[in-house]
């Protein structure tokens, strides 16, 4: 049994979910449409925090923490820092001439994805558990998996995905060196 499973059907969870979702969408629109770059950056932070909230609802607490630490804590600060440095804080966020085609394209893309989302017969975990497809042991193991994600992710990262993990570290190193090279005073 997944911890908290079933409570998702409750009104409270739905209200929380939709609140967070709407705020993410509104924040995203604000990022795009606000003329004030600084405020746009702040709304980006709102969107990131909302995403972290969604992660919590989705039983991915570790990801939620990472999201807050990296996106809200590091990336947002970096972006705001860049905005302050470029001195185009106000009136600095105009559109180019591609609005109409980009809008159409984004709409088409959205329609396509939504078609896929709603046309697919998803094989939902909760439904399978409710139908008793799995044995009691399996159900319990699934529940344990979602409640103890951190050690499991750690084990996966340094065992099964160790190559990708190491490559990621090299990518980060390269990014650091690249950024330093670009910004160095010549």
């Amino acid at each position: 049994m997944i911890l908290g499973a079933g409570t998702e059907d409750s009104m409270v969870i739905d209200v929380v979910f939709w609140t967070i979702s709407v705020s993410i969408i509104v924040a995203a629109l604000a990022v795009v449409h606000l003329k004030d770059l600084f405020r746009a950056a702040l709304f980006l932070v709102v969107a990131f925090l909302g995403a972290a909230g969604l992660f919590v609802l989705l039983r991915a607490e570790f990801i939620a923490v990472v999201q807050v630490l990296i996106y809200v804590g590091a990336i947002s600060v970096l972006i705001i820092f860049a905005i302050m440095t470029t001195r185009e804080v106000e009136q600095g966020n105009p559109f180019n001439r591609l609005r109409a085609p980009a809008m159409t394209l984004a709409g088409l893309f959205l329609a396509g994805v939504l078609f896929v989302v709603f046309a697919t017969e998803w094989n939902i975990l909760d439904v399978a558990i409710a139908n008793g497809t799995f044995s009691a042991d399996t159900t319990q193991m699934i529940g344990e998996t979602f409640t103890t994600t951190v050690p499991r992710i750690a084990a996966l990262l340094i065992r099964d995905y160790v190559l990708a993990f190491e490559v990621a570290s090299v990518v980060l190193l390269a990014a650091i060196i690249g950024a330093l090279t670009l910004m160095r005073d010549r």
């Binding site: 180019n96 591609l98 980009a102 394209l105 893309f109 396509g112």
Partner: peptide, 18 residues
């Protein structure tokens, strides 16, 4: 125009998707 290229890439992706 960087975004023109981006638009082209996106159109391509949407086309393949379609």
């Amino acid at each position: 125009q960087l975004q023109g290229y981006g638009l082209g890439i996106s159109v391509g992706i949407v086309l393949i998707f379609g």
